[in-house]
Amino acid sequence: MLKKKLQLFAAPINTTTAADLEPAISVDFTTRIAENIKELQEVIGVSELIPMSAGTDIKIYEIKKVNTPSQVGEGETIPLTEITRKLVKTYTLDLNKYRKNTTAEAIQKVGREIAINQTDEKLVSEVQKDIKKSFYTTLATGSGTATGTDLQTALANLWAKLQVRFEDMDVTPIFFVNPQDVADYLGTAQIHMQTAFGFTYIENFLGLGTAIISPQVTATKPIATVKENLNGAYAPVSGDVGAVFNLTADATGLVGMVHDLKTDNASVDTLLMSNVVFFPEYADGVFVATISVGE
């Protein structure tokens, strides 16, 4: 009799439980995000992301030679060459948190997989958007300048500036350009565009280097640096934070996700935590050009 009573309170067959949602869905999304980030690393030339504790300060510096002393004769005092290293910008590697909710009605209407996954896709896009926004913000700290009368001359002059700044170094130039600035060129040229992490890029653009095309770059203000000047860091979510919130993370801990059933309002919460940043090591190694059309 007791066995029969217990069966009355057992979960109905095919009931969606937390085990059904976690970790299968989370594994899929965290793996995809991590793979996309690795694709972006390859495009911009960052070979390895540096794990740092949340709250760590990332400092961007500018190195300048103040003077150029003359050579002296034998036995004479050699003048000092003054080199300054100035702090330009400090960023704090904070843990970014994202949350969204899927209602029972949405799940009933289109099914669990579509209702949860489609809205999770939007959440993931916000993560990618924040990583890109942060990256372009740091590029804006660039202190080098160049000019040009059109895109081609501007990029050529940026390339020349990079050769001077990184003289005697084996470097790979990379450019960031607004779509409007390449529209005319793209209309007549046969080129192959690729995408990674929401970035559109062209390899060996104009024979100068990789060009990433983004509306987040100001029109007529293309930016250039070298891949060797770019770094990446992240705050792993696979430690105490991941354990406390039961996050499913990829092997590196780049991103963590968990799904939680909310019985108080009949919905499913999705929580995602991540913080990956890309930044230039030296601000004076980043050059911003001005295209002066018609001048």
Rank of each mutant, 00 (worst) to 15 (best):
K64T: 11
A146E: 02
L80R: 00
A283G: 06
T145N: 04
P173I: 07
E105L: 15
L151W: 04
A235S: 14
L8D: 11
L162I: 12
V177S: 06
F166K: 11
A34T: 08
E105I: 14
K4C: 00
D264T: 09
L151E: 04
K133I: 09
Q118A: 14
L158F: 08
T147F: 04
Y185R: 05
I116A: 04
D94E: 14
G242A: 05
N231K: 15
E82D: 06
V277P: 02
N101E: 15
N246F: 07
T68R: 12
A160C: 02
I63K: 06
E22G: 03
T103E: 03
A146Q: 01
T252W: 05
D57K: 13
I223T: 11
A10F: 00
L186Y: 01
T137I: 12
Q108N: 15
R85V: 07
T218H: 00
A251V: 02
I58S: 00
N178S: 10
D269L: 15
T290F: 06
A211D: 00
D181W: 03
V46H: 03
A224G: 15
E203N: 12
D168L: 13
K97W: 03
I131R: 02
I58Q: 01
K129T: 13
R99H: 13
N96S: 11
F197Y: 13
N231I: 04
G242K: 02
V255C: 10
L95C: 02
M193V: 13
P51Y: 12
V124A: 04
T138D: 12
D130Q: 09
K132C: 03
L87T: 02
T149D: 11
L87F: 03
K59I: 06
D57M: 11
L261Y: 00
K4Q: 13
T31N: 14
V43N: 10
T119H: 14
V177D: 05
S274P: 09
P222L: 04
Q152L: 09
A146D: 01
M273D: 10
V88N: 03
E35Q: 11
M169E: 14
D28T: 14
V46M: 02
Y91C: 03
A19F: 06
T188R: 08
A224C: 04
I83C: 07
G142T: 00
V182I: 13
L87I: 00
A11L: 13
T16N: 12
S274G: 04
I212A: 05
K89W: 07
T290C: 01
Q41W: 02
G285F: 01
G198V: 03
F175D: 10
T195Y: 14
T77P: 06
K100M: 15
P236E: 05
